[in-house]
Design a protein around this nucleic acid. Structure first.
Length: 287
DNA sequence: CTTCTTGTTACTGA
DNA sequence: ATCAGTAACAAGAA
């Protein structure tokens, strides 16, 4: 489930490999992954990538010449994987050479082939992710829907406090709402709440100054650490390959329901539904 | 077989 | 306006 750290890891990986390369072929294997007119998409995208930006979990590829953009949202299971002709490199998390050799696979929805024989694959098991072309105006309209980037230098304590002010919603719903802060998803929302010692169900306007401060500080701390680790790859975490986004080793609550709390060591982590999402917490360490 | 999972939007009702 | 809840999208795991 790519959230900000995973999407940022993918962005950085792709920056090294796909810019200014001529695209010789674009294969659309599942039409619905492309939103909007498909012929128009092909025409624009064939110009190649000039730069890659990101807001929250949305990737923004700047296209050559056209003044247009390719917006890519991975939703839950989307992947962007780059494969050079000789050396096999993932555009995000590490995956095994065997997996790379097997591309395209049954979940490959799009394939870009570059002049040098390398490929960029868009895989998406659940088919919720999408790619679409946007001009400057449409791109601005899309990005305007997002709140402040969680890792932007403008994301200050003062800003955070003003965003929270008057919110009657649960802190978990607040963190998940991309209109407040862009980039936090279910995994990191739970991790932030745990690190701050705050129950995810707590109403935002019931939080004390020090609780709010802890939440603010941990958003930055946890997301930065996760990027350093190359994100969290939950599915890889489950298999025994040993190839995974390294932040899995630091998860304290996500995916640990029923297991002992790593802080107090005694209590079992509980799982409930908050804001429509599975939420894991320690009923003792979080107040 | 049913239930649950995830990101996001759209919708309904309070 | 604000907020909670749910369906929808799709596929697979348990």
């Amino acid at each position: 489930m790519p959230e900000l750290p995973e999407v940022e890891t993918i962005r950085r990986g792709l920056l090294k490999n796909v810019l200014r390369k001529k695209i010789v072929k674009v294969n659309i294997l599942w039409g619905k992954s492309v939103k909007g007119d498909r012929a128009k998409f092909l025409g624009s995208v064939k110009k190649g990538f000039k730069n890659i930006g990101r807001i929250g979990k949305l990737l923004i590829f700047e296209l050559n010449d056209t003044g247009k953009y390719m917006l890519v949202h991975l939703k839950m299971t989307g992947q962007l994987i780059y494969r050079s002709k000789r050396k096999l490199i993932a555009g995000g998390h590490k995956i095994s050479d065997k997996d790379l050799e097997n591309l395209p696979n049954q979940h490959t929805r799009l394939r870009f082939t570059f002049e040098d024989g390398s490929d960029l694959f868009f895989n998406d098991l659940r088919k919720f992710g999408y790619l679409k072309i946007a001009d400057e105006k449409e791109k601005n309209r899309e990005t305007a829907k997002f709140g402040i980037n969680a890792l932007s230098s403008d994301f200050t304590w003062k800003k955070f406090e003003s965003l929270l002010a008057g919110k009657k919603t649960s802190i978990k719903a607040f963190l998940l709402n991309q209109k407040n802060i862009a980039g936090i998803g279910n995994i990191y929302a739970d991790e932030v709440c745990f690190a701050a010692g705050v129950l995810p169900s707590r109403r935002a306007d019931s939080l004390s100054e020090s609780e709010k401060k802890k939440i603010f500080q941990n958003i930055t701390k946890i997301l930065e650490k996760a990027i350093e680790c190359g994100g969290t790859t939950f599915r890889d975490y489950k298999d025994s390959e040993g190839k995974r986004g390294g932040y899995c080793d630091f998860l304290k609550v996500y995916g640990r329901a029923g297991l002992n709390c790593l802080k107090c060591g005694k209590n079992k982590l509980k799982k409930t539904k908050i804001a429509g999402r599975g939420s894991v917490y320690c009923p003792v360490c979080q107040k």
